[in-house]
Design a protein around this nucleic acid. Structure first.
Lengths: 245, 245
DNA sequence: TAGCATGGATTGTTCAACAAGAATAGACGT
DNA sequence: ACGTCTATTCTTGTTGAACAATCCATGCTA
């Protein structure tokens, strides 16, 4: 998963939903191919999601500034953005560290997922254009699972759920959801979670999608609810086995 | 509505929900009575919500830095936080301006409100402790309406909906919702909205609460849904009358 | 009038410096 | 040995100045 791919997963859908210039900066704000401050945020996000900066790791301002070849002040601005997104934890006079979601955080994250995803799916219009993206994601996941490319399965799974939330046609809901999913990714990294654990859920994505497409949104939302409950249990189980909290 | 009151409305509930130290900085991060960087964010937020910095107004770095007696760099850090919260719009090389929600933004905000509030209410446990806060908010709103204190009615209304979302027991959902409500406040300010327009909704808050307390969460959620639809129409109508978009 | 150049203003970014709080190590006493 | 206190050291918080990059408005030219 190279950089551009990840950015695509995380930012493509929301761009299309954005009608006003409101969060223009946050989106792909390139000017003649040169990215501004958001470039630094994206670089940091990439490394966070890739697991190069492990959850809980302290991020030294001087060290990171040197590494990314920016000044401390510029880096601090990026830290504020990441802090607001929940990817890093900032404690005054103690610096920032990579967010290390606790058990309570995981539970909280899944609460958000249940409320947002289920509500969006239940109230989604009958033939939303983005349903195609969901189907595509399912297909990609299936072929990837057949080829045992678990990394691709994981990203396809993320794409599926992002596409699902995009059925709401709400840029803000998408943004919130993306931040939450990014946090969840850190939770995965924390317990050495491997992407192949996404595999059992490929078929359930399929089932949820079919239920929605057949017009029974309510049933689809309920299936998704139990789906998320199972997923949550799996993560919490991994936490317990790893002795994390 | 003085500063401490507003902070109370915006941050008290979420503090209680926050079990981990994750977003500790964002919360009331005081140390011996001295607030750090978040103090500046709070000051700016206060002035934004109070309407002293009108929606759409450009925020000059040098001018604001002098006004708040901080350096440009420190101010820029605060800008990044506010930008991520949606209160401020940042366009590279053109500076920051107070968010000025468009019609599309208002629609988007109400989409979030419907998904979040309705889902939370429908799935709220039967006797959630925070239901008391909802009742208190309703009572405050009623007495304030009788006294024709429309400002207080408006804040009580915000308190009601914040308390409602807190039924989810999710700190992240609360944070998102607070940001969205703050943005909606800017939309109100944009069209010279006066808080007395909240008044007709006092009784409907009461009805929604009663439905929930009587155990019919589904009915309560549906009432809330139509409630929000009416509220949205009201705001959009004001936008149309004011010729805004 | 349309297009273009120029100058002024603002933002983006860096650097060096110092203040302030936190963490570490060592001295001290029990 | 253990805990406590202090002093040193490190990191972060914040500032001011400086310069580059970009935008904007003005006026010029065709």
């Amino acid at each position: 998963m190279d950089c551009s791919t990840r950015i695509d997963v995380r930012h493509t859908l929301i761009e299309e939903l954005s009608t006003s210039t409101h969060h223009f900066c946050r989106l792909s704000h390139y000017d003649g191919g040169v990215a501004y401050e958001s470039s630094l945020v994206n670089q940091l996000t990439d490394r966070l999601i890739a697991g190069e900066l492990r959850p809980g790791a302290r991020l030294s301002e001087t060290a990171l500034a040197k590494e990314f070849d920016v000044s401390r002040n510029t880096l601090r601005e990026a830290f504020r953005v990441l802090g607001e997104q929940g990817l890093v934890n900032h404690i005054p006079h103690r610096g920032v560290s990579v967010a290390s979601p606790s058990t309570a955080d995981v539970i909280d994250i899944y609460r958000v997922r249940r409320h947002v995803e289920c509500s969006v799916l239940e109230n989604a219009p009958k033939n939303h254009p983005h349903a195609d993206r969901m189907r595509e994601a399912v297909e990609v996941a299936e072929t990837a699972a057949a080829a045992e490319d678990w990394l691709l399965v994981g990203t396809a799974n993320m794409t599926f759920h992002n596409a699902l939330v995009s059925l709401s046609d709400s840029a803000r809901l998408m943004r919130t959801f993306e931040n939450v999913l990014a946090e969840l990714r850190l939770a995965f990294l924390k317990v050495e979670f491997l992407d192949f654990l996404h595999a059992p859920f490929v078929v359930r994505n399929q089932e949820v999608l079919d239920a929605y497409l057949s017009g029974s949104s309510r049933a689809a939302a309920e299936m998704l609810g139990t789906y998320l409950g199972d997923s949550e249990r799996q993560v919490l189980g991994a936490y317990a086995r790893a002795g994390k909290d």
